[in-house]
Design a binder for these strands. Sequence first.
DNA 1: TTTATATTGTGAATATTGTCACAATAAATT
DNA 2: AATTTATTGTGACAATATTCACAATATAAA
Lengths: 204, 204
Amino acid sequence: MSSTEFTKRLLTYRLSLLHLQEIGLNDVYSHLIAGETGFSAALIRKDFSRINVKGKRRGGYEIDVILQAINNYFGDDKVSKVILVGMGNIGSAIARYKDFQNQKLRIVAAFDIDPAKQRKKFSIPVYSMGKCQEIIYCYEIEAGIIAVPAFSAQTVCDRLVYCGIKGILNFAPVNLKVPEEVYVSNVSLSNELRHVIYHAKQNK
Amino acid sequence: MSSTEFTKRLLTYRLSLLHLQEIGLNDVYSHLIAGETGFSAALIRKDFSRINVKGKRRGGYEIDVILQAINNYFGDDKVSKVILVGMGNIGSAIARYKDFQNQKLRIVAAFDIDPAKQRKKFSIPVYSMGKCQEIIYCYEIEAGIIAVPAFSAQTVCDRLVYCGIKGILNFAPVNLKVPEEVYVSNVSLSNELRHVIYHAKQNK
DNA sequence: TTTATATTGTGAATATTGTCACAATAAATT
DNA sequence: AATTTATTGTGACAATATTCACAATATAAA
């Protein structure tokens, strides 16, 4: 199993490389990416080597080649389809999030227990949880986003797992419990913020 | 400098412990927390030892004591004050986010270039960026949240840093560049989701 | 009271991750 | 063409993080 840090670094590189490409660059040196991302140049070269990206000695790397290899590592140029559960405060913001479209990430359906939410016009259809299994099967969904209140998050999670979901991005402030074969990423906004505040205090 | 993983684990423990406390427990064993969080029992004990939490041999740990020590590590029972820049899609969801209040995290002011946003009624005041320095000084703010579009994120960031902010939680899909003494946590929703999808595919 | 059992706390062993240093080499310069 | 220079690619090394194993010890049971 490849380390989570490595995978995250690849996504960080990608973000920087897309930016550099946008401002007109075609090639980069490991030191430049180091400056952009904060990782060391040697580590970056090792990472590139790991995904079989070859540079030219003294010539640097072609941005296109790296981006291609990173996309390849993540297994797709295809659009990835996910579902979203919970169209409250956070959920509806995620539903409207623009960057997903650029990134070939598509939320194909959302779910909410509130019938009013189901009638309301969002850019994606909102169903009751009853439809969840059907949709997951039809669209062959592998990953879901949970944005429901803390008290119902585990129940929703269990249901998604039962329907065959293998990856969950969880915004509820709860540590979800799942079987081993399911991957959960808990994004606790409070924890992230606490973490930042902690470091801010250290650096004063 | 203490590792970021260690700090994150502490916050994960806290989330689980609060939950366990809510369902009526007073004491816990390291193995129980292991089951809740997915970290190994030995690691948990080492972590507790590191923040000077003592258990009773064969008796487990008192939840209260652990929580107190974790709060203490993060340096506060006081309310932590932060600012928020950008009241668009993501920004306004963050402004409304309930969990911050429970967690003694308070967004004291928000900023947006759009005058319409400034007039609109949110539960927190929304100012133009012009007010930013003044507010940061008055409230002695150390950390800020950036939720502006990618193209303006670095500019906003530079301004916050200039005003003395030492910690930034960034939701814009950009790797922000900051001086060494400033801590940035980049939360890219797209990257988080990609990461989950990647693991979901692995686990199929 | 004695024995069995479960749990903490931690030093030692192991595994993982990242850095360093430099040979290989391509490009640029003289 | 020869020399200098800048960069990659990677093996050896260092640092860090995690697990293992078990002594210490408190509780429960017999």
